[in-house]
């Protein structure tokens, strides 16, 4: 099967098995390795990307379902919200091994795009599917609050 994908605003041709999970197309064919393989069964969140702005586990999404949809990976984050989230992550030294953090950030950005004043409960709900073996959860939560605070002020503009 051949098709055209829209990844990070660029058209990319794909030819291959339509069942191929988007994760492997992104990582192995497009070379965008910031999206990680964790469990392969949509249970850990390491492979989270945005499809039309909505977080999705790319390890379990067949590429054939992506026709006409806008795919964004960690490498393609560019919005004001995304920049604020990434900056908060760095400023609070959220990461440890970092392997899950692309997915954490993708989920956090999607949350703040939808709910600029996310509560702890909102965060817990939105990021419940993103597992961190280093257990950076407290700093993740703090970073989301910090990003939200900055976005609400001029600092995040």
């Amino acid at each position: 099967m051949s098709m055209t994908l829209n990844v990070n605003g660029t058209r990319r041709d794909f030819y291959g098995d339509p069942d191929t999970p988007l994760l492997w197309v992104i990582r192995e064919q497009l070379g965008l390795t910031g999206t990680k393989y964790g469990c392969g069964i949509a249970q850990c969140g390491a492979c989270t990307i945005h499809v039309d702005g909505v977080p999705l586990r790319s390890c379990s999404a067949p590429v054939a379902a992506m026709t006409g949809r806008a795919i964004t990976t960690i490498e393609g984050l560019a919005s004001r919200v995304a920049k604020a989230v990434q900056k908060a992550w760095v400023d609070l030294d959220v990461v440890q091994c970092g392997y899950c953090q692309s997915g954490q950030i993708m989920s956090a950005v999607a949350l703040l795009e939808k709910k600029p004043k996310a509560t702890d409960e909102d965060i817990d709900h939105a990021l419940a599917g993103n597992i961190c073996r280093c257990a950076t959860y407290q700093r993740i939560r703090a970073a989301i609050h910090l990003a939200a605070k900055r976005l609400a002020s001029k600092e995040g503009a």
Partner: peptide, 21 residues
């Protein structure tokens, strides 16, 4: 001394073993 590996792990550019080609 903020972590030196924060930025690369927040923008997808950090290379892990599974990313090596």
């Amino acid at each position: 001394t903020p972590r030196v590996d924060s930025l690369s792990k927040c923008n997808g550019s950090a290379i892990y073993t599974i990313d090596v080609t």
